[in-house]
Design a binder for these strands. Structure first.
Length: 632
DNA sequence: GCCGTTTTCGGCCCGACTGTTTTCAGTCG
């Protein structure tokens, strides 16, 4: 949390400094840091009179650039700028968000950012400017020229940029408080386009504090999605039903539940749907679609289509948007049209639509699994014979190589963990408690590990059909040395090396730290390499590509941590690692017996990174696993 | 602002729903 706040503070400092009217320059490079393209080595401007304490600035994160491009797009919308210019900023933001590589690092490597999808010379220049100064001129001017607080208004459902602007121009409304006052004083209804319903909607949104949907972890929405899907399938007149969207693609986070139902009686389905017991509020209810809020605040968007359109509706609502748009472009190239109702020729004759396979086939493409539909080359691959990967499956996993027990901060005993692994049908399980540096979780010393090994051996003998491996998740210290000596580690079957402290070192120091760990022959697996927590904590700053290459040369495997909060290495890193020939382990980092069930999230990340069974060490037998782990 | 069986400028996804209107603009996904 502290780390998060620090990052926020630094980002806020950069932004505040950059908008000051009177400016002077201040070099802010921290002592000992190497020159780089990051903000921590550049000159930033600060307003006169602001007391400046020398502070080590973080590298500019891709997410900072994304936020600025989104803000730019929002402010342009409030100015009624051309939709295409706005869309260009949003498209660029999406590209950067999904990039998986640090922009500053790319610039440092001399790469041309304008080669990225949707980023031309102009935006490439603006990105460089952001990384140098923390902002860019057009945004600063726009912030001055417009009323940035109007963005708040668009957080109210059914109020978009046009209505926000109207409210500002006609009633002088600048923020949510002004809006509430205007409603209460009856001024809103004087405005053309606003009536009783608008007043109700605004007051309701104020009351519930409802804002535009926030994203949630996949694991947090799973139960709701499964119940919803079961409910939809149980309705009268339903032929098929599916929760699509990012939930179906098994993304790390989910914004809402996009659902599709196949039925020839749409109205009847919608009528039954709005009676779903988990619904808190019906946002809208049409003839063939409806949006509702569940009690948890999660939004569900339902669309009902005829059976002959179910496949195309699934493709449409599963997304990702750019996957679906690429298909649409392909249709246009052939003088055809693809929408949620099917693929149509010039005369509007349906060519395909009943199943997803039919649609892909009409484009001469192999079926593309939902996890791959991110417009990351899957369509090109599907056009080639055997071009798509044969994705790893949860059933391919034969053991878990990362879990904790009551010896450190786990909640179950060695025996309980072993029994549970056996029940899951695993061939092996590695017990990998924390090392001594992690004092707050009772990390183990070399002596403790030897004692634990005796217990592991006993349990191993007791539980037939499962091989219990003695291991450790060893801390990588700030200087890159390991928390335990070679002597302590030599006898272990599995050594995972992870970072748990000093998460905010400079990119150079953090990279050097991991390089040193990788050089250590005891480092068989690097655990949760990015150190991030989804929606909670940024990743550590490292030269990921360099580290992955070094790991490959050294024979280290990279963990795909299956904890739904981590999913680390992330899918973009996985894809890069895969391309350079690295091997992975997929493990849960379970801290309880139930935690072993989290394996699916790791498998989903692997699948989203195009990983096959052969790329993962713990899909092999005990013997092949021993051979595949780095020899010491 | 990007892109291009490009080269200098035109096209850029599109359908459902809502509220207020009386045929449509704005919003959303």
């Amino acid at each position: 949390m502290i780390e998060h706040l620090q990052r926020f503070f630094v980002a806020a400092t950069i932004l505040r400094c950059a908008v000051g009217s009177e400016r002077r320059s201040l070099p802010v490079r921290a002592k000992g840091d190497a020159p780089s393209a990051f903000a921590n080595t550049s000159t930033i401007r600060v307003p006169r009179g602001l007391t400046v304490i020398e502070r080590k600035l973080m590298a500019v994160h891709n997410s900072d650039v994304v936020a600025m491009f989104q803000e730019m797009a929002d402010l342009l919308e409030l100015e009624d700028e051309s939709t295409f210019r706005i869309r260009a900023y949003r498209q660029a933001a999406t590209t950067i968000d999904e990039l998986g590589r640090n922009l500053g690092q790319m610039i440092e490597n001399g790469e041309d950012l304008s080669e990225l999808q949707g980023i031309g010379k102009d935006l490439a220049g603006k990105i460089e400017r952001i990384i140098e100064t923390g902002s860019f001129d057009d945004l600063e001017e726009l912030r001055k020229r417009t009323t940035p607080s109007l963005r708040e208004l668009t957080h109210i459902p059914q109020i978009g940029p046009k209505r926000a602007r109207l409210l500002h121009e006609k009633l002088g409304i600048e923020n949510l408080d002004d809006l509430e006052d205007a409603v209460n004083e009856g001024r809103l209804r004087e405005l053309k386009g606003f009536g009783k319903r608008a007043e109700e909607q605004i007051l309701s949104a104020m009351e519930t504090g409802r804002r535009k949907k926030e994203r949630r972890l996949l694991s947090e929405v799973e139960e709701a999605a499964e119940s919803l899907e079961a409910f939809l399938n149980s309705l009268n007149g339903v032929k098929d039903a599916c929760v699509a969207g990012s939930y179906r693609r098994k993304a790390e986070t989910v914004g809402d539940l996009d659902s599709v139902v196949s039925s020839s009686q749409p109205g009847k389905i919608i009528d039954q749907f709005v009676e779903y017991e988990d619904i808190d509020q019906v946002i809208n209810k049409g003839k063939a679609s409806s949006s509702v809020l569940l009690r948890s605040g999660l939004q569900v968007d339902l669309r009902v289509v005829k059976p002959e359109s179910y496949g195309s509706a699934l493709i449409y609502f599963t997304g990702a948007k750019n996957h679906q748009l690429t298909l649409r472009d392909m249709a246009l190239d052939k003088d055809q049209k693809l929408n949620e109702y099917g693929l149509f020729d010039k005369k509007d004759k349906q060519l395909a639509g009943k199943t997803e396979k039919d649609i892909y086939k009409a484009f001469n493409l192999a079926y593309i699994e939902p996890e791959l539909r991110e417009n990351r080359g899957e369509i090109d691959a599907a056009a080639k014979q055997n071009g798509l990967p044969k994705l790893i499956d949860i059933d391919d996993i034969r053991g878990d190589l990362h879990c904790h027990t009551t010896w450190s901060d786990g909640r179950a005993s060695v025996e309980k963990m072993a029994e549970t692994a056996k029940e899951r049908g695993y061939d092996y399980l590695a017990i990998t408690d924390h090392s001594k540096r992690m004092q707050m979780v009772n990390g183990l010393s070399g002596k403790d590990l030897r004692k634990q090994a005796e217990e592991i051996k006993k349990v191993d003998e007791k539980i037939k059909g499962l091989t219990l491996l003695a291991g450790c998740e060893v801390d990588i210290l700030e200087d890159g040395t390991l928390d335990l000596s070679d002597d302590d580690l030599n006898d272990l079957d599995v050594v995972i090396c992870s970072i748990h402290s000093n998460m905010n070192l400079s990119s150079r120091k953090q990279t050097d730290r991991l390089l040193r760990a990788i050089e250590n022959p005891n480092c068989q697996i690097i655990g949760h390499m990015r150190g991030r927590k989804v929606l909670e904590r940024d990743e550590i700053d490292i030269d990921l590509e360099r580290l992955l290459k070094e790991a490959k040369d050294a024979g280290c495997a990279i963990e795909i941590n299956a904890d739904p909060h981590r999913r680390d290495l992330d899918e973009n890193g996985v894809r890069f690692a895969l391309d350079i020939g690295l091997k992975f382990t997929v493990s849960t980092d379970a801290h309880s017996a139930a935690g072993l069930d989290q394996m699916k999230y790791g498998v989903w990340t692997a699948r989203r990174g195009w990983v096959e069974k052969k790329d993962v060490l713990n899909t092999g037998t005990m013997n092949s696993l021993r051979k595949a782990l780095r020899s010491r």
